[in-house]
Amino acid sequence: MLLQMRGWDRLMGMNARNEFIARHNPPAAVRLVNDKFATKAALQAAGISSAPTLRTISSRQELGRLNWAEMPDTFAVKPNQSMGGSGILLAAARLDVESWCSGSGRPIPLLELKDHVRLVIDGEFSPRARDIALFEPLLIVHPELAELTFQGLPDVRVICIGDKAIVAMLRLPTSASGGRANLHQKAIGAAVDLDTGRISRAWLDGQIIAEHPDTGAPLAGVRVPEWADVLDLARRCAAVTNLHYLGADVVVDRSRGPLILEVNARPGLQIQNVTGQGLLDVIEAEVIG
C-alpha cells in the first residue's frame, strides 16, 4: 500500500500549489505581475529585456486620436490584464496604409482592429470592467526553433523559486492550438534540461511524441538558442517582482534575442506531466535546504 502511494506523494496538486503561493507570494507582487505594463517597467528598470511597448490605449478618445498610418508594418495588440493569453491580435504584414493581415494571411479590416481595441478597453478579456490595450512589436520565432512550431511563437516557461530555476519547458504551438503556445489548447510541452538547454522529452495531450505533428521535425535533443541568457533572465525576475514562486515566460526573438514575455504568479501544474517529475520533489528541497 505504501509502495503504491509512493508515485503520488511528490506530485503537486492545486491545493498544495494554492497553499504554497498563499504563503510565499506577497499579494502586492501578484498584483504587479497581473499588470503587464507595470511588470515591463519594473523589469526594464532592472535592466532585464522584455518585449517593448509601442503605445498604450486606455480610452475611446485615445483610440479615436490614434493615427493608424504611423503604426509599424507588424505589431501585436494585447490586453494589459488578460487571463490565459486571450485577446491577443497579431498584425503580421501590412497590406495597405491602414490595413494589415493576420499570421495566416487573412486580411484584417481597420474596423475589426478598432473593434478589437474597443473590446480590450471595455475589459472583455480581463477580470475588470476596464483595461488598457498594449501595442507591441511583433516577435518572430528564432530560426533554430522555426521548424518546431506552427504559425506561432514558442516560449520557454521557467519555474523559479527565488533566484534558482528548478524546471523548464518549451511550449510549441500547433495547428490544433491555433498558433497559441497554450498547453490547455493542445500545444506541445517539451521538457528542457536545465544544464544543456536541450529538449529531453515532448508531451502532447497525454502522449509522449517524437516529432511535431504539423511540421514533422524531430523534437528530442533540439537546443534552445541562447539558453544561458534565457535562464539568466528568468532567474532575475524574483528579485524584481518580489515573487518567491513564479513562472517566467521567455521568448527568443529572431532579432532581439531572449525577452521576458510575462511573469506568472500562479504557474500551472501541467509541467509535471511534461517533465514526468513531481514539483514537490524539487520545491521541498529548496524550502528546507
Binding site: 509502495l3 509512493r6 508515485g7 503520488w8 511528490r10 506530485l11 496538486g13 492545486m14 491545493n15 498544495a16 497553499e19 497525454g206 501544474l269 509535471q272 506531466n273 514526468g276 517529475q277 513531481g278
Partner: peptide, 21 residues
C-alpha cells in the same frame, strides 16, 4: 487547508505517477 491531491487530479497526473513509480 488540505494540501493533498484532489480526486480528479488522480486522473490528470495518473500516467506521470505511474512513470515515476
Amino acid at each position: 487547508t488540505y494540501r493533498g491531491l484532489r480526486l480528479t487530479e488522480l486522473a490528470r497526473f495518473g500516467s506521470t505517477a505511474q512513470a515515476r513509480k
